[in-house]
Design a binder for these strands. Structure first.
Length: 901
DNA sequence: CATCTGGAACAAACG
DNA sequence: TGCGTTTGTTCCAGA
């Protein structure tokens, strides 16, 4: 196979399917030609002609999980009404005419891939039925998640089980090995592989279907929604996700028995291999960053749409999964691509061919990718453009009939409306595997759970959606390797409903006027899907290795009358979900002061976690090009340090004659590859020296990344317009923001709310809306405790435990963990308000963080947009790449230090 | 007894 | 190719 060209591959693929499944019929014909076809996995093709999803039982097969991978949904098209957008289904494929196969539809319709082909096949007897019903699309999900109906087997490994019937060429273990074919395996191998994939997918699908209920998980709670509930929009039926479910199929393979763990498929894909960093870094992960991005769906609004107006929005939405089908992977490296294709789902492998779509597949790496298919995306924005695009985000106004896909950037604020995370989650949360029991709900740093509140609306109950999103520099989108997990139990007071949208599990909760439209998120856990399961999906381009950071993403669709809704979204600070990282990476949550004279010598107190007796604090300065220009290790006062507090003396800056404040950064290192995200720190000219104060100093310089606010968290509304956080890397700041992405917020709107950025540490209390935060965040709830693991052989940590310093009041807001986001690119943009691109917040970057060009970032304010814009724009692609690369590499590589080591 | 955790053993990837 | 390291996943055990 390898040899085979894409086309060949496809053929094979088809064959495979055909043989194994019936797919062929479907797909075959059309084999997609077009974009759609491409995108659409075989299934799609098949489906195309067919009736919409639901209905057809046939459709069934879940394609693989939805779209998530690249997930870029097609941009919504402009709705008739000005300013309003209609979202197209993510990933859905448009069927259009191409192939006869699709024919039926004639026009273009959007299908979800998922549904497509499989149906006929129904592998398992039982399952089939199930499939049909089963709405759950979760594509994403790992199969396991949802326990499939028992019968199925599942997902890939399950091997015997589920797959059995169908494809499973190789039962159980199929998986990985099969992939070998990537390398060069023989055709057979390839076939098998394909089969496996297919199988797994099918199984998944089946399983899902199998699940009678929409979701495997108990949705005990009634779904929250109000009449107006926008949600209904998504699906045909309000309640249901029905449509979605139906459409989607996610796969849920049943829990797979534990197979030996498959290696991650990727295995083959090495992440570094690409050479480019991109793949490597977790954050980026995936395809390379740039390239992909480029491809990513351009958010840009005004696309031409592909879809017919006619097509039902909701479905689209649902349909999204199909889109996923798009082989994103293909995009990866060409080499791999070829191979990859096999996936059942996609015919694509070959895709290269997509008509238009080509992007993906063959598309040159940089090219646009997948979505293309029906979309309008075609034009792939240049990298830069791309960055901007994303920044921009989409308009939050949609027609009720078509809610925005989950991967669409949305502002956190629109006019008077603002969705705010009043209490951010902890920076670490060990996600659980399907093979494990739940590890509980995500908790907040201050204790308790995250709290989300909708400001500017209190008329009636609304549904708050939550899903697990990425934390990398690219557009915020559903995370391929993590899914929200609904937690139930006596300790859980918040009713929630689990739904699947385009392959992504979404937890729905209700925002009640009586609760000030605030919700305590005590019902959301995080499920980790095996990398191998996800990576094998056809469309999946992201890699799971080291891609362990996520953000909680919240959305609300506020009815505006006239059939329109305003969709606002906000994302939490990044959350490290791996056990190891959480245990080993130092995190700086707050520090004070954030600036001092170039002469140094001042005492700097850091509060955070995972500090070790031998932790080092390194100050660095990067040039405009992102290169390290200065590096100096600070002297840590071990006697006044402990696991959660580091007291050190700020080193003297290299050039004491500077006339302007110098933006520098520092990070805590526990050794090679174990460093915190960089934090912003300014060295002030002697002239300014007077102010060395912590915050104060910053204030003077807007540009500084430091936010103006008080260190702590002031969340208070009255914030300065341009807050930024000092912490993290400036570079990252922008991107991140957790919250938000709120792009526009700041500047434009007078906001009601605090600047979006404040997020980090915040701890606001929900209701109060206020920020209680005022008080500084306690620098961390962490109390000093002995070092857990005693590095010192039992001797106990050298630090005097007791010591902590009360963090000076001026602590900087902590970033929660540091998130990594480094990206210079802001996550989302808001459309309307011009996204403030800049608004950067700080994004903490986690490890790698550093990479980002800090230069710019440093400043944060929105105001200008700065930073982002500037920086970003100013940055060359190479730089970007470089930056990204770093991330990937692991960590910040701030120059020196351990990295290499 | 089930859930939630914290730790760690194991083994695949990496480099 | 071999080897040490890193990281993902599965298990175990205690609360």
């Amino acid at each position: 196979m390898g040899a085979a060209s894409c086309e060949d591959e496809e053929l094979e693929f088809k064959l495979v399917f055909g043989e194994e499944k019936e797919a062929p019929p479907l797909g075959a014909g059309g084999a997609g030609e077009e974009l759609d076809s491409e995108d659409a996995p075989p299934c799609c093709r098949l489906a195309l002609g067919e009736p919409p999803p639901y209905g057809a039982a046939p459709i069934g097969i879940p394609r693989p999980p939805p779209p998530r991978p690249g997930m870029h949904s097609p941009p919504p098209r402009p709705a008739p009404s000005p300013g309003t957008w209609e979202s197209q289904p993510a990933r859905s494929v448009r069927l259009g005419g191409p192939g006869g196969s699709s024919g039926g539809a004639g026009g273009s319709r959007v299908l979800e891939c998922p549904s497509i082909r499989i149906t006929s096949i129904s592998p398992t007897p039982d399952p089939p039925a199930a499939l049909e019903d089963n709405p759950d699309p979760w594509g994403e999900g790992s199969p396991r998640d949802y326990p499939p109906p028992e019968g199925f087997g599942g997902y890939r490994e399950a091997g015997g089980q589920g797959g059995g019937p169908f494809f499973s060429p190789s039962p159980g273990s199929s998986s990985l090995s099969s992939w070998s074919f990537f390398s060069d395996a023989s055709d057979e191998a390839a076939l098998y592989a394909a089969c496996d994939e297919v199988e797994s997918e099918l199984n998944e699908a089946a399983s899902r279907f199998g699940l009678g209920s929409p979701l495997p998980s108990p949705r005990a709670s009634p779904r929250p929604w109000t009449p107006d509930d926008p949600w209904s929009l998504y699906g045909p039926s309000p309640g249901g996700r029905g449509p979605e479910d139906s459409w989607l199929l996610l796969s849920a393979p049943g829990p797979t028995p534990a197979s030996p763990r498959p290696a991650s498929p990727c295995g083959k894909r090495r992440y570094s291999s690409s050479g480019t960093p991109s793949s490597a870094s977790p954050a980026l992960s995936r395809r390379g960053s740039l390239g992909e991005e480029g491809p990513e769906p351009p958010p840009p609004p005004p696309l031409p749409l592909v879809r017919d107006p006619g097509s039902p929005g909701p479905f689209d939405y649902v349909g999204a999964p199909s889109a996923e089908s798009i082989p994103q992977k293909t995009r990866r490296t060409s080499s791999e691509q070829a191979v990859a294709l096999p996936r059942s789902e996609e015919p694509a492998p070959c895709n290269g061919k997509l008509p238009s779509g080509a992007e993906e597949a063959g598309a040159p790496p940089g090219g646009p990718r997948k979505e293309a298919a029906g979309m309008d995306y075609l034009a792939v924005p240049s990298p830069l453009a791309w960055s901007k695009a994303r920044i921009g985000g989409h308009s939050p106004i949609f027609r009720t009939s078509a809610l925005p896909p989950l991967d669409w950037p949305l502002p956190s604020q629109y006019e008077q409306l603002e969705l705010r995370i009043e209490v951010q989650p902890r920076a670490h949360h060990r996600a659980h595997y399907e093979t494990e029991g739940s590890r509980g709900a995500v908790k907040a740093a201050p204790g308790g759970h995250p709290v989300v509140k909708l400001l500017g609306y209190s008329e009636k109950p609304l549904t708050l959606q939550m899903f697990i999103g990425t934390a990398d520099e690219r557009n915020l989108r559903p995370h391929a390797f993590y899914q929200v997990h609904r937690i139930t139990g006596k300790m859980v007071a918040t009713a929630s409903y689990e739904a699947v949208v385009s392959g992504t599990k979404v937890l729905e909760m209700t925002l009640l006027p009586e609760n000030n439209m605030a919700a305590n998120i005590d019902c959301a856990g995080i499920l980790k899907l095996r990398n191998s399961d996800i990576e094998l999906r056809k469309g999946e381009t992201d890699i799971g290795r080291k891609n362990t950071r996520v953000r909680l993403v919240f959305r609300v669709h506020v009815p505006q009358g006239s059939g329109k809704v305003v969709s606002v979204q906000t994302a939490s600070v990044p959350i490290e979900c791996s056990q190891r990282s959480a245990q080993e990476l130092p995190q700086v949550e707050a520090y004070s002061p954030s600036a001092c004279s170039v002469r140094g010598g001042e005492e700097l107190v850091l509060t955070g976690s995972n500090f070790l007796p031998d932790s080092k604090v390194v100050f660095i300065e990067r040039g405009p090009d992102g290169k390290l220009q200065w590096e100096e290790e600070a002297t840590v006062n071990r006697l006044q340090s402990n696991e959660v507090t580091l007291t050190l003396t700020v080193p003297e800056y290299s050039n004491k004659r500077v006339s302007r404040p110098v933006q520098a950064y520092f990070y805590v290192s526990n050794g090679r590859r174990k460093r915190s995200p960089t934090q912003s720190f300014k060295f002030l000219p002697v002239i300014f020296k007077e102010e060395p104060l912590p915050d104060a100093s910053l204030r003077g310089f807007p540009s500084a990344s430091g936010p103006p606010f008080g260190s702590d968290m002031d969340f208070s509304p009255p914030r300065p317009p341009y807050p930024s956080y000092p912490h993290e890397d400036p570079a990252y700041e922008t991107p991140y923001l957790s919250e938000g992405f709120s792009y526009g917020t700041p500047p434009l709107y007078p906001q009601t709310g605090p600047p979006p950025s404040y997020r980090p540490g915040l701890r606001m209390f929900p209701e109060t809306g206020g920020a209680t935060g005022c008080a500084r965040p306690p620098p961390v709830s962490l109390l000093p405790r002995p070092f857990p693991s005693d590095p010192y052989g039992g001797r106990g940590s050298p630090f005097p435990l007791g010591l902590q310093f009360p963090p000076p009041s001026p602590f900087r807001p902590p970033l929660p963990s540091s998130p990594p986001l480094e990206g210079p690119f802001p996550p989302q943009g808001s459309v309307h308000p011009p996204p403030a691109e800049g608004y950067s917040e700080v994004g903490p970057s986690y490890g790698p963080g550093e990479g980002a060009p800090e230069q710019e970032k440093s400043r944060g304010g929105y105001g200008s947009g700065f930073r982002d814009s500037v920086p970003i724009q100013g940055i060359t692609l190479e730089e970007v790449s470089e930056i990204i690369g770093r991330d990937l590499s692991g960590f910040p590589a701030p120059p020196g230090e351990e990295p290499p080591a």
